[in-house]
């Protein structure tokens, strides 16, 4: 029982981080109908921001995660201004290919600037710390990442559902032309949505150097899992992406331990295929 609880908790903690990564993608996808293939690379850039702040000026990832969020907010807004706005109104494949190009560009830029070396931050505030509840071990870095994920996703949900800005975002997502007719500056909404979507993944990436090595390839798998979470949760549904993230984390952990470690991603993508087959709009899709 103790082992089961340990595996389950590990899965929930990983899943909450997946959920935060997926929430940003979900927002962009839901509002703008743009598949951002560079989402995993945003995460990687955020990890580098946090790493360099830690390495050069000794800022802990727990603090630099805010700077990483702000940086990726700017990167997201810039991506919209320089790339995405030219693809709006064109076939979906155009934006998809454009963001794919951006992903390749970012990965190779980091490879060129920082080399493919794996970089690890040692002596972080949370690094290596654990606490024990009965026989269950909770890793403090992962726990903090999960708490941060929960806070950010709740704030994002409140922002979208309980503020005038959020209603404007929803209106733009439903009908851009009608939103403009009632005076919403949809161009501004798009920039902010891309920025906020980036900030979510930026915050997730910012705290990760507490426990994960940074290298140019690190974002690829997280990006892929974020797509699975968004598609499973339902396009545009933040609660859907959040719950799917946790579900993915739990399935990955349980399958990895009780079936075989090498089977964990098979189970995750198998579940994704099953959901998409039985309910193509996702669990919370409409």
């Amino acid at each position: 029982m103790e082992t089961f609880l340990q595996v389950l908790i590990d899965g929930i903690l990983s899943g909450m981080v997946y959920a935060l990564v997926a929430a940003g993608l979900c927002l962009i996808w839901g509002v703008m109908d743009v598949i951002n293939f560079a989402h995993g690379e945003y995460l990687m850039v955020a990890m580098y921001v946090s790493y360099w702040l830690g390495f050069l000026v000794n800022v802990d990832p727990l603090v630099s995660t805010i700077a990483a969020g702000v940086f990726i907010f700017g990167l997201g807004a810039l991506t919209y201004k320089l790339i995405i706005r030219f693809t709006i109104g064109k076939p979906g494949l155009v934006a998809l290919l454009a963001t794919f190009g951006l992903a390749v560009f970012l990965k190779n830029l980091c490879m060129n600037q920082f080399s493919p070396n794996f970089r690890i931050l040692s002596d972080t505030w949370l690094g290596g710390k654990t606490f024990h509840i009965g026989g269950i071990i909770l890793a403090v870095p992962q726990l903090m990442a999960a708490v941060l994920a929960l806070v950010v996703v709740v704030l994002l949900y409140l922002l979208i559902n309980n503020t005038r800005f959020g209603w404007a975002v929803q209106a733009t997502a439903m009908d851009r032309d009608a939103a403009e007719l009632v005076g919403i500056n949809t161009e501004r909404i798009y920039i902010l949505v891309f920025g906020i979507g980036g900030a979510c993944v930026g915050i997730a990436g910012g705290i990760m150097p507490s426990y994960l090595a940074v290298h140019p390839e690190v974002g690829s798998m997280f990006g892929l899992i974020a797509f699975v979470c968004v598609a499973m949760g339902g396009f545009g549904s933040i609660p859907g992406a959040f719950l799917s993230g946790i579900l993915v984390g739990v399935v990955e952990a349980l399958a990895g331990f009780y079936i075989a470690p090498v089977f964990k991603y098979v189970a995750v993508f198998g579940l994704y295929l099953a959901v998409v087959f039985l309910r193509p709009k996702g669990i919370f899709g409409w």
Partner: peptide, 9 residues
């Protein structure tokens, strides 16, 4: 992999 939790467990 994004984590090696199941493997180490």
């Amino acid at each position: 992999a994004t984590n090696l939790n199941s493997e180490v467990q």
